[in-house]
Design a protein around this nucleic acid. Structure first.
Length: 111
DNA sequence: ACCATGACGTTTC
DNA sequence: CGAAACGCCATGG
């Protein structure tokens, strides 16, 4: 749509780079993109991710607390949780357990 | 052009 | 230690 999509594209790119069974938070992605204070925009990008032809594993992106805040934006109610649990991630009350264990930091893992 | 909202995060009381 | 307020950036009305 616009050149600004480049920013969103980065987010989608990172989101797709998230390994199986791992999750990350918006802040880390935003920081990796150089917009550490734009964590909200990352969420916005995810919202727009539906516009992308390629599917984005937005279910692997949660907030810093490991809370599935965006699950409400998914198709169903527990779809996001279902997907994550399917990858071996334990979630209780929309809260990811062993977050440190499944957490994936792009700045740390990616060059 | 201004006000309000949002899949967040950090700082302050 | 817990809750509340503020800050940031972009999009919508």
């Amino acid at each position: 749509m616009k050149e600004s999509d480049n920013f969103f594209e980065r987010v989608y790119k990172i989101a797709r780079l998230i390994p199986y069974g791992k999750v990350t938070n918006y802040g880390s992605i935003a920081k990796y993109l150089g917009a550490a204070k734009s964590a909200r925009m990352v969420g916005w990008a995810m919202n727009n991710s539906h516009n992308q032809t390629q599917e984005v594993p937005a279910h692997r992106v949660v907030n810093r607390k490991g809370l599935l805040t965006g699950k409400h934006h998914f198709d169903g109610t527990n779809l996001m949780q279902q997907l994550l649990e399917s990858e071996g991630i334990i979630i209780i009350e929309n809260q990811i357990q062993e977050l440190e264990k499944v957490f994936w930091d792009p700045m740390k893992e990616l060059p």
